[in-house]
Design a protein around this nucleic acid. Structure first.
Lengths: 244, 244
DNA sequence: GACGGTCTGTGCGCTGACGCGCATACGACG
DNA sequence: CGTCGTATGCGCGTCAGCGCACAGACCGTC
């Protein structure tokens, strides 16, 4: 086992780290470390899942794809969550796509092992269901945000979410990609990003964005960021802090 | 017991009717029939729930309320679903409001009884989780629909969903109320409704809308309606048809 | 049958975002 | 050090939806 694998602790994922020791021990042999590359598709819309992923350093984006090919992000998961809810919810698949937005590591677990542990009805089930409820809040907030807020506000929110999930404040991402995530035009993102740069909140050059002033971004963002964050703390905060 | 109560069969709710007979029998004594009035608030954002509702003839709307007071609907539940997911998902509450959109009947069940049956891990749990996944799809589709489609398309979609949940094609609803649901201006709804009336798809007078041409509405709606409907059939269709 | 409240139609001006096209700038790679 | 691919800047014209304001139409009620 290499050094990187050793240091790649499954407990970097908050959901896994929240489990009581006995449940975690039972799960541990089933957790396979994987490297996820930028742009890699974890699962395609309608495709049956055979693994659930618990990211530790990777960030994964949930995208909805329209018939005309345009996309929009409905949720994001990093070390605060998991990818592949449909597996334990019973649907086996969902009509959306999961794409790696920031390369990094994750642990995957096979469908069968996951379902087995889920149906024991212990802390694991509780955490998975609470996370699912959190994800619903995230999606709901995205829905209203899409209707009511400006591109610039949404960009701020999106940057803040990324900042929370990333270790650094450097983000490898072009305006074009962000536009796909937000479901808006590339130019719209460029203009919004230009504003933010002028205000000194961020700096960017050819595909890397550096966040300079976090609290400034929070002010410029819409309420949606804060609401969702608070809901995470409410639903999963006590679980997670308990074991940290 | 009056005639109306007798005929008010819990099995009018598709989720309840999908249960195997033994589970249904166990649940039946816990199901209390209730009348829900137009505009009644089932639960308020952040309020702890003590009942889950299975509508039979009523329609309930899930609304997200922004800080500035504007609202937007993220989902709808009628005899195809239930209201109060947060109860079995573990959060006890959600940051949204549930309002009766069309008066009618429902069965409610107390938190404790519901949780007990849920944790047995049988067909009931399966149906509740699948419905939750369906609701996520509905919300996701709302998110992208908000971003990408016109008010007129969204109005069509909204009318079609109502038509599915209602027995009749007469809908008691003002433009103003619809605007609150869709999170748009009242005038926007009036204009869109005007178009649809000109095309002969609907007719309306002061707070009642009659749907005249269902397939015409389907053509005028965006893809979102069909996608969500198909997902319902995939997730819950086989369960439901089995027992009908 | 008059009144008042509510529901719908219409007309502004305004803005944010769209779609398109193209200019520029950067940087990796040979 | 030149070249090519990609990332960003910018300038159109267009349009849907917003906010506001007000007029007409309809209905229940006294």
């Amino acid at each position: 086992m290499s050094i990187t694998e050793q240091t790649h602790d499954a407990k970097l994922n908050h959901l896994l780290s929240s489990l009581p020791e006995d449940e975690f021990k039972r799960l541990e042999p089933e957790l396979k470390p994987v490297e996820l590359d930028l742009g890699e598709v974890i699962y395609e819309s309608g495709e049956t899942l055979d693994h659930v992923y618990f990211p530790t350093t990777a960030i994964i984006s949930l995208l909805f794809i329209m018939e005309n090919g345009s996309t929009a992000e409905i949720g994001m998961a990093g070390n605060d969550g998991l990818v592949g809810i449909a597996l334990f919810m019973g649907g086996s698949t969902t009509p959306n796509r999961a794409v790696v937005q920031s390369a990094g590591k994750a642990f995957k677990i096979r469908s069968k092992a996951l379902k087995f542990e889920f149906h024991l009805g212990g802390a694991f089930q509780n955490v998975l269901l609470r996370y699912t409820q959190y994800l619903m809040t995230q999606i709901s907030q995205t829905a209203v945000c899409n209707r009511l807020h400006s591109v610039e506000q949404q960009l701020c929110r999106w940057l803040l979410i990324n900042h929370d999930l990333l270790q650094s404040n450097k983000l490898i991402m072009t305006h074009d990609l962000i536009a796909n995530m937000l479901g808006v035009r590339r130019e719209g993102v460029s203009i919004a990003a230009g504003h933010l740069q002028k205000k000194g909140l961020i700096r960017y050059v050819r595909g890397t964005i550096t966040m300079l002033d976090r609290s400034g971004l929070e002010t410029a963002a819409c309420e949606c960021y804060q609401v969702v964050k608070e809901e995470y703390d409410r639903l999963l905060g006590t679980f997670i802090s308990k074991n940290r």
